[in-house]
């Protein structure tokens, strides 16, 4: 009987699936789309595994969602970029200690035709003001991610209350960096992106970098162990090993060595206590 054999095969596959699910020495890291999509983790994790035998599973989310994942105890380590939110997380007792790891920077990208006329500027705040004054299409992540929070902060610095001043030109899509870039490419709009995602993004279309190099565009990453006192399931030993490796000279060098098309994406700065 054909069907019976088919059902049998399905049932057997379901049973064997159990073995595929078996896991051993591993930790779960909640991180951001920028570290994942740029390929940084693909570069770092094999080195770490070779050295320690620990499997690092990365769930790439927006920083807001990643911090919530840590708060719920669903991750062992957070690796994110929103210093204020990270410090709040610590002060609430959900994290043990925050270690600065590295930074990269944001860039403002937009259409080659540059309808806002801001290309080449090094003043991101002035550029934001221009976008708002001219009502030029702008894509916002709108997802509470680190990039979104950095964007909101820049509006504030520019003296613009975006919640009340936004017009039809300001489009919040509530999605990840890639989706925001896809949207901008498809509609010739401006968008703030981290450089790492930008460099590895493959659907640039007419988009080019308009504004870069402003110190206010620097983007600091930190790493934290989720507090085992709050969530006893946290794999403290392995998680701390990962953190220690990231901030060690070996880990820092590995971060500096990661390049796309010869361009360095992340700048290690674990030794900078203010970062």
């Amino acid at each position: 009987m054909f069907t019976r054999r088919l059902l049998m095969a399905i049932a057997v596959s379901a049973v064997f699936a159990g073995s595929a699910f078996a896991q051993d020495k591993s930790i779960l890291v909640a991180s951001t789309t920028s570290t994942q999509d740029s390929g940084l983790f693909g570069h770092l994790l094999p080195m770490f595994k070779d050295k320690t035998g620990i499997d690092v599973k990365v769930v790439a989310q927006g920083t807001g969602q990643a911090i919530d994942t840590g708060r719920r105890g669903d991750a062992d380590v957070l690796f994110v970029h929103a210093k204020a939110a990270e410090e709040k997380f610590l002060s609430e007792g959900f994290g043990v200690k925050r270690y600065p790891v590295m930074y990269n920077d944001f860039v403002l990208v937009g259409p080659k035709s540059d309808p806002a006329g801001i290309k080449g500027s090094k003043d991101i705040v002035a550029a934001f003001k221009t976008l708002k004054d001219k009502g030029i299409d702008f894509i916002s992540r709108g997802d509470k991610s680190g990039t979104h929070q950095a964007e909101l902060n820049l509006w504030k610095v520019a003296g613009i209350d975006i919640a009340t001043d936004k017009g039809p030109w300001y489009k919040e899509i509530g999605q990840g960096m890639g989706a925001a870039l896809n949207t901008a490419a498809a509609s010739n709009a401006y968008v703030l992106t981290d450089r790492a995602t930008w460099l590895s993004f493959k659907n640039k279309g007419e988009l080019v970098i308009e504004v870069e190099g402003d110190k206010r565009l620097f983007n600091q990453y930190g790493v934290m162990l989720v507090n085992p006192a709050k969530h006893p399931n946290v794999k403290q030993e392995f998680g701390q090993q990962f953190i220690d490796w990231l901030v060690s000279s070996e880990g820092q060098k590995a971060i500096a060595d990661f390049k796309i098309n010869g361009e360095q994406l992340f700048y290690p700065n674990a030794s900078d206590p203010g970062a």
Partner: peptide, 16 residues
């Protein structure tokens, strides 16, 4: 989720 009713099963973010 660890914070949810079945959190002790430790199944979130697994194929199960």
């Amino acid at each position: 989720s660890r914070a949810g009713p079945l959190g002790s099963w430790g199944l979130l973010f697994t194929p199960k």
